[in-house]
Design a protein around this nucleic acid. Structure first.
Lengths: 111, 111
DNA sequence: TATTTATATTGCAATATTACGATAATTGGT
DNA sequence: ACCAATTATCGTAATATTGCAATATAAATA
């Protein structure tokens, strides 16, 4: 089927999953890491950094934009990309909210 | 093509992506949240909690096991599932390592 | 207006994912 | 050995994702 039954889950579960999905490709991780490293808006030098074709990079950028992790603004004939700091913190909190909830239990575990 | 060119990326980028991918489905998020909530090994009551068929749940559990986030041990005719605490912390650090790297830059951003 | 540069979109092919019914495998109990 | 309970696997169908070539779009410049 390939069709996720998202209507069965909460909005939070769906959002978390959607964000994780966006992070779920090494090219998109690489793009984010690059944006973090250069610490500035970059004018589309991503194609030179990530070993994929320009159309493919463009697609990945679109997906990262769709979940709000990055934003881009037109700068002449090229485009400035950068991390969306506000959304970035939001997502960090969302993920941390999941991971911080874990507590080991005293009785031990057979697993 | 549908075939990720993972050979083009670093081991860390691929691992991060793989973990994120495992988190990238609401059913798997729901399963993890349930395991966090009950704070104990559960004997496969997941099928009653998550509105999907038993075979589908089984597949999702398999994927979560594959990236090490959960583990299961046979308990009679059923199976105990729980979060793998060690791996959980590891993944938390990996994700936080990505998100903590962000610093807003002074010059501002046209985006 | 034509040209160059940079990015997005389209179209297509191949692989991956999701879901479920049917069935198998495993264990415990009778 | 047989049966019930629980989980895993198989088979199949439908949709999603990935990647690139070709093309379109948009902006600056000659």
């Amino acid at each position: 089927m390939g069709l996720t039954k998202s209507e069965n889950f909460t909005a939070q579960q769906n959002e978390l999953a959607q964000i994780a999905k966006a992070l779920g490709h090494p090219a998109r991780v690489a793009i984010l890491q690059h944006l973090l490293k250069v610490k500035s808006c970059i004018c589309g030098a991503i194609v030179d950094e990530v070993p994929l074709s320009q159309p493919t990079i463009s697609r990945h950028l679109k997906e990262l934009k769709a979940v709000g992790l990055i934003k881009g603004s037109i700068e002449g004939t090229s485009i400035n990309y950068c991390i969306d700091g506000e959304r970035w913190a939001e997502v960090q909190n969302l993920l941390n909210g999941l991971f911080a909830r874990y507590e080991p239990f005293e009785e031990g575990c057979a697993c």
